[in-house]
Design a protein around this nucleic acid. Sequence first.
DNA 1: ATCCGATGTCAAT
DNA 2: TTGACCTCGGATC
Length: 287
Amino acid sequence: MPEGHTIHRLARQHAQWFVGEPVTIDSPQGRFAREAAVLSGRAMVGVEALGKHLFHRWDHPRWPLVHIHLGLFGRAWHPTDPAAEPRGTVRMRLIGPRRALHLIGPTCCELLDRGGWAALRGRLGEDPLRADADPERACVGLMRRRRPIAAVLLDQAVIAGLGNVYRAELCFLLGLDPFTPADRLSRGDADLIWSLSGALLTAGTRTGRIVVAPPRGATHPGAGRRPGDRLYVYKRSRCRVCGGSISRAPLEGRTLYWCPACQVSSTAVPPVDLSAVLRGLRPSGAL
DNA sequence: ATCCGATGTCAAT
DNA sequence: TTGACCTCGGATC
């Protein structure tokens, strides 16, 4: 499930469960054993998320950060029994008094020094979920690219945290032809993309999953339970709005989904009520 | 029992 | 643009 919302949710949970608590760190699978030994006996002092990257801050002079990226397959399991046996290949394990973290299959799990952190920050764009985000830089960067908007939305150097589900759903919400070159978008549309990204990621962080569309009729068992029931186009065969068939094609190495009937414009022409999305997904102060 | 795709990224062509 | 890599689960035989 790893788009930005997943990572920010993990950050909140880990801060709550592990920071300021006695935590042991090890590597049942072995590939993080040396690093775990370096931090053994230290305290976790903070947690941070930036786009799809997660950082555990430790009280260590040389290696203050563990840098985690889940990649496509990585998962975090948090057994309520901290002593639970590892299931599968656990690269890094944290055991606190209330919970454990079993990190499985991450693309990246490494120690980082201050230089490493600075380098990473430098090549990432703006994360709508961060208080220090600079919307201006994100919008300007977006409008400078010639690539199709659906490709640019995956570019972590522009907006950090969006992935293949959000890019498809964002283009749909705007009624945008996903192949529209980003540099043809108006500033107003770029602003809208930024606002919607923030609203959707915020809702995703709160709920733990990507919710874009109102869940569909709860009339029969199972309704609203499939992921596609909360989305407009991603992995769907029919458009929820017009009923037409959803197109799919590789773009930027990933499968892009879009509705060829609802998404015909190179300017935002939302096929659904965006104010409801923006309002419903961002209650004041909730996160 | 085996295959294949997946909410991701990078290095090598 | 392609392949490699991290791992699991659902579809398929």
